[in-house]
Every structure is written in C-alpha cells, then in structure tokens.
C-alpha cells in the first residue's frame, strides 16, 4: 500500500502533502485536547505495534500478499486524532529509515492510511458500533468490520490520486477494479487482526481503549 516516488506526479504529490500537513495540524490540536499525558507511552506503543505488524505480510492470493494498515486499530486504541498521528509517525519512519514509501509520496500515503484509514475508518467503526448491542464484545466486532472496509477505502484513495496525477498511461477503470478486488481480500486479514488485537486489549484493560471512553463506561459485559 506504500506508494513509491514517481507513480503520482510531483504536483499532485505536493498537493496531497499539503493536505496531510493540514490534517496533521488539526490532529495535533485535537490530540492535545483529548489525549492525557499519562497515555503518551501507550500512543507511542501503538505506533511501534503498527510498525511491527506492517512488517508481517500475509499471503492473500498466488503472487500477492497483504499487510495490516492499522488505521482502525490505532484509532480505536488511542482515538482518531492520535490515531492519525500514529500512522503519520509510522509512515515517516518507514520512508526515512527503511526506504519504504517514497519521500515525495509521503503526503499521499498519509492521506490514504492516516486520513482515510484511521480517521475515516474510525467513522465507520462508530457507525457499526452504534448499530450493535451495547456489550463490550461489540467493540472488537465493530473494529474488525471497520478495518475490513477501511482497506478498500484506502485503496480507493490511491485510485483517486492516480486519477488526478498518475504518470502512467493505463486504464483507470482497470486500475480501480484491480485495486478494489485485491484490497477487499486484504481487508479480510486487516479485519481479523484488528478484531483479535482489540479483543485482547478489551479483555485485559478496556479502560485503555481510548477510542470509546464513554461507551466503555456505560457497557455491560
């Protein structure tokens, strides 16, 4: 899912860089308001876990793998604004230290995995959560469903960027179909991993599921 340099033109990439920077400013302000100081280590740990999980590509179909994006996972654990910051930190480390994801494509990748994956995915999570019984086990379920949907959504982010500034002369419809079809399958893995990790945190320390503080307080077992 990490876009390399060159696939999207420089002007478009710079434009999305500006969107990502603006998004980071808003996310930082909201994080300042909503994340308490004592939760800073957990937010940093969430970033480290997303980095680690992204290393583990799982086989999807012959000749193709997928890996966790982690946007919904991060947003459910630390809230959507801090979740966006988490994905931004991971993407910057991956690009600067491991040459994974182009330097000029950083804004594109932050928009797809941070803005769409974490913030948009969190919106999906709240919608699913509102439609499920008020029980703790609904939290990992809603996270899994949202994570599953967030992967093709992030893939559509790439398709939109490719439509605006793609440098290769190929059929946009074919790219859209291929991105959607492959990422729906990858989304299954995203949903399973996200569901299990969130279930583990809910079972051990549900007060640390910072994405749903009011629900956790009100929910029955």
């Amino acid at each position: 899912m990490h876009i390399p340099d060159g696939v999207i033109g420089a002007t478009t990439a710079a434009g999305f860089g500006a969107v990502a920077a603006g998004g980071f400013g808003i996310a930082a302000r909201r994080t300042r308001e909503h994340l308490s100081d004592r939760h800073i280590p957990l937010a940093a740990l969430t970033a480290a876990f997303v980095f680690a999980a992204q290393m583990v590509n799982f086989p999807v179909i012959a000749g193709m793998s997928g890996h966790l994006l982690g946007g919904v996972l991060a947003a459910v654990l630390v809230g959507p604004a801090a979740g966006f910051v988490v994905l931004t930190v991971v993407l910057i480390v991956q690009s600067l230290v491991f040459a994974d994801g182009g330097l000029t494509a950083l804004g594109l990748n932050i928009v797809n995995m941070g803005l769409i994956g974490a913030v948009g995915g969190y919106g999906l999570f709240r919608v699913v959560l509102a439609a499920t019984p008020r029980r703790f086990r609904s939290i990992p379920f809603a996270a899994a469903v949202a994570a599953f949907l967030a992967v093709p959504a992030a893939a559509m982010g790439f398709v939109g960027e490719f439509a605006i500034g793609g440098t290769a002369d190929v059929s946009l419809g074919a790219v859209l179909t291929a991105m959607l079809g492959t990422h729906v399958l990858i989304g299954i893995g995203e949903g399973v991993i996200t569901g299990f990790v969130v279930a583990g945190v809910v079972a051990s320390r549900r007060d640390l599921v910072l994405g749903v503080p009011e629900q956790v307080a009100a929910r029955g077992a």
């Binding site: 390399p4 000749g63 193709m64 074919a174 492959t182």
Partner: peptide, 26 residues
C-alpha cells in the same frame, strides 16, 4: 512474512504502471 508483492505492487505489475516507480532516494 510473505515475500510476494503487496496489493499495490501486484496491481502496479498487472496493470502496467510498475515502471513508473522510481527507486527510493534512500
């Protein structure tokens, strides 16, 4: 971890825009 291309790399190869990618500066 699987060493197969991820979703985006796979689609880039299948749809013929993999060559548009430049090597990472680092």
């Amino acid at each position: 971890a699987s060493d197969q291309p991820d979703g985006l790399e796979y689609v880039a190869e299948e749809e013929g825009f993999a060559d548009a990618a430049r090597d990472h500066d680092l």
